[in-house]
Amino acid sequence: MKQELKFKVNGEERELWIDPKTLLVEVLREELGLTGTHWSCDTGACCCCTVNVDGMAVKSCSMLAMQAYGREVTTIEGLADGPTLHPLQQAFIDNWAFQCGFCTSGQIMAANALLNENPSPTREQIQLQLDGHICRCTGYNMIQEAIQDAAKRLQKSKV
């Protein structure tokens, strides 16, 4: 039996009928075509699939899509302001904070939730927030540098 799911995705109201056991990541990728959210480990252990739900970092593989009912989901596709990249995205490019890029959406969305809460995190706070995010390419240091760089850019733009 399909159920109706109403939620906001990247600022748009969405209504669709889904099998209630469908995961949020499946709805995003397969129903809405938002394939920027990746899926890697099948066991909730890699954080590749992190999105923001009401501003919080959430693993979209560990949440049923129905649990997002009435809430606001932001994926990597919703972060940029039109053609202008979000400072996190620009900082990830400028600091070589990704290589293969497969885990990058999750890293950026987790960092986004962190910066919303804490606009100038220390290196240790970044490590703590992103500790569950597995990356096989970068060794993390350049990701942490990019997040601190983005924090500075965000603060500058607010002044």
Binding site: T35, H38, L79, L85, I93, F98, G101, T104
Partner: peptide, 17 residues
Amino acid sequence: NVDGMAKTTGEGKYTFD
């Protein structure tokens, strides 16, 4: 990275996508 735009916005497609 010249693939920066693709890989940080979710627009870049992997076979997986």
